[in-house]
Amino acid sequence: MPADIALPASAPLSARPPRRRARRVTTEPGWFRAALIATVLTLLALLLFLPLWEVFSQALSEGFGAAVASLGNPDARHAILLTLLTALVAVPMNAAFGIAAAWMIAKFDFRGKAFLITLIDLPFSVSPVVAGLCLTLLFGSGSALGAFMIAHGMQVVFAVPGIILATMFVTFPFVARELIPVMQEQGRAEEEAALTLGASGWRTFRTVTLPNIRWALLYGVLLCNARAMGEFGAVAVISGKIRGETITMPLMIEMSYNEYLTVAAFTMAALLASLGLVMLTAKTLLEWRFADQLAARHRH
């Protein structure tokens, strides 16, 4: 017990024995902590916060009216609708895939499970440009399949289906990667209990599994959606960048930027950045509120 606690409050200061502060052995010296925090915050400001601020300040550089007016252009509107449509198809498809893959991997034991997980992660180690190239080769007029589909009126390359497929490719692992660890941790005791009590497989999934994974599913969907709306490389390759037809929001940003339409480019960018910020906020709230129901790496 430190000696100074026993001293009466009225004791003159000079009567206190020199106080030796115990050195905390499991942390760094104060000067080191302060220096590290200052350095890291400076770097993060330069890398993260200033670019974000730049997006909004450039968008509003000619006033709010000019920014809003740039979105009124029919090409811009078409790009926004196309991006929404792409996310609306690609994200639910990948969510369905994620649930199916997680169900298979977490609730069953089979050979080659590790290999299957590696295959699911494959899109993370393939450049989006290469992903776009793969799809272009498969569905383009140069391949037998592509030629057949074009002959029957199904255009994939330089058309909306190609954009959706490319988006699905790059966002493919997001939901599955989020759900697999959560479902593995939950095991299958609860589902087995429901089945024993006579529930059908579908009912077990709906009333037992789904409530258990809903927040993790939402988390995965948020990440998937953010990437889907912002995907650039893969979509740039397969879309053919046909104005008013296959231009998504990120491609529209590139086009406006290259034409020196700064306000238009940054307004579109600000719109996407705002969506990203909403996503980030929702994701952070999930981490704070439902940490116990998310994958272990999000529990702070």
């Binding site: 993060l44 993260l48 670019p51 929001m249 990120p250 960018a269 950045a273 980030l280 994701k283 952070t284």
Partner: peptide, 23 residues
């Protein structure tokens, strides 16, 4: 800061690209 670390995941690459370039 904890939340902001994920900003590169949330910000589309084209947005980051033009912002970093002008900056």
């Amino acid at each position: 800061i904890d939340a902001a670390v994920d900003l590169p995941f949330a910000l589309p690459t084209a947005v980051a690209g033009i912002a970093l370039t002008t900056l």
